[in-house]
Computed example of a mutant assay.
Amino acid sequence: MKNLAVLIPAYNEEMTIAKVVKDVQGAIADIDGAAVYVYDNNSADKTAALAKEAGAIVRHEYAQGKGAVIRRMFREIDARAYIMLDADDTYPVEAIPEMYAKVMDRQADMVVGDRLSSTYFEQNKRPFHNVGNSMVRAMINHLFKTDIRDILTGYRAFSYRFVKTFPVLSRGFEIETEMSIHATEKNLLVDTVVVNYRDRPDGSVSKLNTFGDGLKVVKTVINLYRGYHPFAFYGSFSLLALLAATILFVLRVGIPYAQTHLVDNMPSLVVAMILFVGALIAFFSGSILNAIQTNDKRSFELALIRAADRQKDLENAE
């Protein structure tokens, strides 16, 4: 079992991968039991060969997508602490010892490398990314009542119990959003290290699609909110349907009936009843799913205990 595993997912990063590996090796030189892993995700260039030549342990994930790579990394590697960073040379490796210490000494489950509080908005040359990062951060912090300052950063540190209990559901770049929401919803300890971001070097091309990946992130946030807060999600639809049913019934049925004692607008009455039934269905659906979610939280706490026991067994086996 390693003390520290540095995980680098890589896809067509031959321009920067060797420098990133060597820089990381320099940053972890004083940490006993540390290793650098590069997971190549079907690169069409020399990424894997250059990473191996630079001294990294190279492995492969053939299912395309960053989420698939992270699933493979988290399942295969056992370590007391993990650092994950991108292979594009945009993150300062000098922050690794501090992030590692927060996991080992302060028992943080996830440490976020916060770019947005430092140089991101000056260094990043894609203005829509700046807007997107700010919007996603505001939406998640509002919906999930948290205060994570950089939701989409690819520079993070993790504890063993986070890695071994995190269910990887996303396949693409929305995985960072999933990690952030999972940590806050499961009451895991999240810490922050402010890091200086630098944009990609000239000639290095980002794999992100501003609008396509942005829509995937928003969809992920909505789906996770529905999953973690089903009563609030379905309750909002129930309330809207109930208000619409009440207004329609009063204006189109109730008031005319009080004047004529006749139901002159039968279609309006039918629609109002349908909306009322829909409100009841949404309310009870949210209530049932909320009970299931509560039970899921209990199960997760037991999973944390099992992960801690397995970590002790691995340490005792050394």
Score class of each variant (00 low, 15 high):
2 K>C: 02
3 N>E: 12
6 V>L: 02
13 E>S: 06
15 M>K: 15
21 V>R: 08
23 D>V: 05
25 Q>N: 10
28 I>A: 04
30 D>S: 13
31 I>S: 00
31 I>Q: 06
33 G>F: 03
41 N>F: 02
48 A>D: 06
55 G>H: 00
56 A>S: 03
56 A>Y: 01
57 I>G: 01
64 Q>L: 07
65 G>E: 05
69 V>N: 09
71 R>E: 10
73 M>Y: 01
82 Y>V: 03
105 D>Y: 07
107 Q>E: 15
110 M>W: 07
116 L>D: 09
118 S>V: 08
123 Q>N: 09
131 V>R: 13
134 S>T: 10
136 V>Q: 05
137 R>H: 00
139 M>G: 07
140 I>M: 13
147 D>N: 14
150 D>K: 03
159 S>F: 01
161 R>F: 06
166 F>R: 02
169 L>N: 13
169 L>S: 13
170 S>P: 00
171 R>D: 11
174 E>A: 09
177 T>Y: 01
185 E>F: 00
189 L>D: 11
190 V>L: 09
192 T>M: 09
197 Y>Q: 04
201 P>R: 05
202 D>C: 02
209 N>L: 06
215 L>F: 10
215 L>Y: 11
217 V>T: 15
218 V>Q: 10
223 N>R: 06
227 G>L: 04
238 S>M: 01
243 L>A: 14
243 L>W: 07
247 I>A: 08
252 R>C: 04
255 I>P: 03
256 P>T: 01
260 T>G: 07
277 V>W: 01
283 F>I: 06
284 F>E: 08
288 I>Q: 12
290 N>S: 15
292 I>L: 14
294 T>Q: 14
296 D>M: 12
302 L>E: 11
303 A>H: 06
308 A>T: 14
309 D>H: 05
309 D>E: 11
318 E>L: 14
